[in-house]
């Protein structure tokens, strides 16, 4: 190994020297790359190779239990033509549209509010707590809250003389109900990130703004939002990635039903991989989801990209 590195080092050094780069700079960079190597290796082994591997699996027919055989790109039209996949993709996008704006706006609103209240630490902990709870437990508790007969949500509706709802059994309500659970659960993460971002905005900028007549909403819109835009972008991208991977609450609460109304892409993927033993189909679904996520993330980054220094 050492001999290989030694052999590799000499031509690298001479190549850079020919291009006018100082020998000391090259040596320093090599050491830097050597120190970066563990992280790069981790990235390659756990990020890049699995994606390539998944793509390779998407070209196969068969399963984890059965032998696989190469079938080229045939799985892609099969999956795209499958009405269950199209429903699952639509549900996933609808779900993301319901959850992401809600957690981002409510998160920011609560973060601003939290900066102005007493017992900040207590309220921050209270808001963050649902994020720490295991999804399976949260979902079980939530299923009792929305139970049509003895759930407190319907009890309240009855007190208000409104008709009780079958929150998870009605195809029109099931997806928004599952989204509600995810909003409750992921709000805390966004609040904490926004609280930290708001704390980094220098007070002098607000003072300067006040001299120019920026107060309240105007200060928030013209000072706070532009200055925390990189953080908003971060939370938006993270929320998009997480919510497009929506699985656990569907798995615990509805198993994709009724009539596929809560079926999401990852739920469909999971069933194909582990219950139906169709690993090629599951890998194809994963690659298609990756592409959708990538496109949406790139759009978000392009639209919201900004450089802020303060």
């Amino acid at each position: 190994m050492y001999a290989i590195l030694k052999k590799m080092r000499a031509p690298i050094l001479s190549a850079f020297e020919r291009r006018g780069v100082k020998r000391s700079t090259i040596s320093r960079n090599l050491v830097a790359y050597a120190f970066l190597a563990p992280s790069l290796a981790f990235f390659v082994v756990f990020m890049i190779i699995p994606v390539i591997w998944t793509f390779g699996l998407s070209l196969q027919e068969g399963g984890l239990l059965r032998a696989t055989s190469f079938i080229g790109l045939s799985n892609y039209p099969t999956v795209i033509r499958d009405p269950r996949f199209r429903i699952a993709m639509l549900n996933t996008l609808l779900y993301a549209v319901m959850v992401i704006p809600a957690v981002l706006t409510m998160g920011l609103f609560l973060a601003v509010l939290l900066r102005q209240v007493v017992f900040k630490t207590f309220f921050k902990s209270a808001v963050f707590f649902p994020h720490l709870s295991a999804m399976a437990i949260a979902a079980v508790v939530f299923s009792y809250m929305v139970h049509p007969e003895f759930g407190p949500l319907n009890q309240m509706l009855r007190l208000l003389h409104l008709p009780a709802q079958n929150w998870l059994g009605d195809p029109q309500l099931a997806l928004p109900t599952v989204a509600l659970l995810e909003i409750w659960r992921s709000l805390g993460f966004n609040v904490i990130v926004y609280v930290a971002a708001l704390g980094r905005v220098p007070e002098e900028i607000y003072e300067a703004g006040r001299l120019d007549g920026a107060h309240g909403w105007s200060a928030f819109w013209h000072i706070t939002v532009p200055l925390i835009k990189p953080v908003i972008l971060f939370t938006l991208v993270m929320a998009t990635v997480w919510n497009l991977q929506m699985f656990d609450s569907v798995f615990v609460l509805t198993r994709g039903g009724p009539v596929y109304s809560t079926a999401t892409v990852v739920w469909f993927l999971y069933d194909n991989a582990f219950y139906y033993d169709k690993v090629g189909i599951a890998a194809t679904i994963a690659i298609l989801l990756l592409l959708v996520t990538l496109v949406l993330t790139l759009i978000q980054v392009r639209v919201l990209r900004s450089e802020v220094e303060y």
Partner: peptide, 11 residues
């Protein structure tokens, strides 16, 4: 019957 989907086995 109660609403479809409202009861699990234990309930």
């Amino acid at each position: 019957l109660p609403d479809y989907g409202s009861y699990d086995q234990e309930q």
